[in-house]
Simulated scan of single mutants.
Amino acid sequence: MNKINYENLNYDIKIKIYHDQKDFGPGVAKIMELIRETGTLSEAYRAMEMSSSKAWKIIKKAEKDLGIKLIDTVTGGAGGGKSTLTKEGEDFLDRYISFSNELENIAKELFNKHFSCDIINKR
């Protein structure tokens, strides 16, 4: 059996926050961030190369599981529709981002502790 090459080894963590169904994660968070930036759901899902139906589906599933409304939308009109995050949505997204960033920093430290070539070569 070959010895594993630890150089250039990577990891990935996908964080999901949920009650019963794992419906709020990086995808919903990204849509919400893009809505916050662009002011429209349509620009957000286009930027993610996602269909409108899929975007609505994952948002609605997350809202149902969390028990809060994440996004408010106004359709049509002279200037077109717009979307905004609800107060609860803003708060939840900010908490998710903070938690994810902190967890990523801790994970990076642990990854380096356990998979760093310097540490591996000393064993």
Rank of each mutant, 00 (worst) to 15 (best):
N112G: 15
K16S: 13
S51V: 01
I97V: 15
G77H: 01
D72C: 04
N5H: 07
K16E: 06
T75G: 10
I17S: 03
I4H: 08
G39F: 00
G81N: 01
E43L: 10
I58V: 07
E43R: 09
S52D: 02
K57M: 01
K22L: 05
S83P: 00
M50D: 01
K64P: 00
M50Q: 03
A47D: 06
Y45T: 05
I4F: 05
M48D: 03
K14W: 00
T40F: 00
T86W: 04
A47E: 09
E109H: 07
A55Y: 10
G80I: 10
E109T: 09
K108L: 03
K69P: 00
L93K: 04
K122F: 12
Q21H: 14
K108W: 03
L103R: 03
F111H: 12
F92N: 08
R95Y: 12
G76T: 02
I97L: 13
E104V: 04
L41Y: 01
D12L: 08
S83W: 02
R46W: 04
S52K: 07
A47Q: 08
T40H: 00
E63F: 06
N2C: 04
M50C: 01
E7G: 14
I58P: 01
L85M: 11
K30A: 14
N105A: 15
R95G: 09
S98A: 14
E37V: 05
E102A: 07
H19S: 09
D23Y: 05
